[in-house]
Design a protein around this nucleic acid. Structure first.
Lengths: 208, 208
DNA sequence: AAGTTCATCTTGACGCCGTTCAGATTGGAG
DNA sequence: CTCCAATCTGAACGGCGTCAAGATGAACTT
């Protein structure tokens, strides 16, 4: 009767509350925004008492960490797809950037949680540099592919630069000040590509 | 038992609570961080009852707006100074970027409030494009000075690109993942200039 | 089949939050 | 000196994160 769709979770009899809470949190996040994401509201949404989550997460922050982790997973998938469908090697990097910003624009609340969770720890998720298909590593590998310097420090600086530009753009694109630019350029993607075209590493100019 | 900690005295005999509250908020922000910034705590710090602020600000958000405004003012001053002391025209833009990020690094809590206040309104402060010595306008003017395209759309895209890069870097530089890079390059400013050197518009790659 | 165990979930409480409102206070205009 | 309007207080409301203690019931024994 119950579905064992989760790779790993409560092998025990009762409901898989841990996952149910994360799902409820994401549902609330999409429908009501980040400000409505209280622990009590999540418990309510999942149909349990306000104290129930504490048997699965140390505190609210740990629940949010789990939500954020799902966000990073989704982002990685989106960027893998973008990288695969890019036309030229040059285009790959810009497409990665556009995919990144579009993810942030489509899931603004989730995107916020992802960085808030990191910020409180002054630390990005562990998989950030480690996992080979992490968004970060994909940017770095694409830079190599595009003929970036193989000096390790330079490569890391370049990857960081690309990431910063995309992250900054993701936050800026939310402000309506730039709506007239998007209109003038014929849509958000054109706007994003326009901004990226001014940022060296995205412009196809291989960094030295 | 009141403390006359403010340099300037209160013109009226009964306090200039409005300013006192903003000062108290900034004091709390520096000492305890953004999470400790409750309206009640601010009132406590200012020595008034929890309801007193409501005679000067519609709600907590409006108080935060006033705090944020002070932040933008400080940032504008810092960037004006950076622009004035830059060596070459090329160096000006990078120096502006470095000044921006360093402001964010020196006042992380204030920087956060500045953008949080904007985000809730989906709108940047009014002076952003308007005031001539706003940080944004200074970046744009420096781009013109450096010989950027005079096409208005292109210019706005370029300014936006520069801002995004700086904003992204400001947030990224807080993560300790990049500490080893800073060490390897001999300090944070060198790290920042290194990242900027990979971003087209910050073309002047001269390091100090 | 019955009893025991133990993770899970609920109830109720604590202190803090933002916000409201009725009433006390008070500086200054008349 | 009186009165007004602006300012401030105290108490209250509902919501929050969190915790301690008790109830529940599936799974493991025997």
């Amino acid at each position: 009767m119950r579905e064992a769709l989760a790779p790993e979770s409560r092998p025990y009899h009762h409901g898989d509350l841990s996952r149910a809470l994360v799902d409820a949190a994401r549902r609330l996040l999409e429908s009501e925004g980040p400000s409505a994401l209280s622990l009590r509201a999540v418990a309510r949404e999942a149909g349990v008492s306000p104290a129930a989550p504490y048997h699965h997460f140390k505190d609210k922050g740990e629940l949010l960490d789990a939500v954020a982790q799902q966000g990073w997973d989704i982002l990685n998938v989106a960027m893998t797809a973008a990288r695969a469908t890019a036309l030229s090697v040059q285009d790959k990097l810009t497409s990665l950037g556009v995919a990144y910003v579009q993810f942030a624009r489509e899931h603004p609340a989730l995107y916020r949680v992802m960085y808030d969770a990191s910020r409180d720890k002054a630390d990005l998720p562990a998989h950030f540099h480690a996992d080979n298909d992490s968004a970060y590593c994909q940017v770095r590998d694409t830079l190599i592919e595009a003929g970036a310097s193989d000096d390790e420090v330079e490569l890391e600086l370049a990857t960081n630069a690309a990431w910063c530009a995309a992250h900054g753009l993701a936050e800026m694109a939310a402000f309506k000040q730039f709506d007239h630019l998007k209109e003038k350029l014929g849509g958000e993607e054109a706007f994003l590509r326009g901004v990226f075209s001014h940022l060296g590493i995205f412009a196809g100019t291989a960094s030295r």
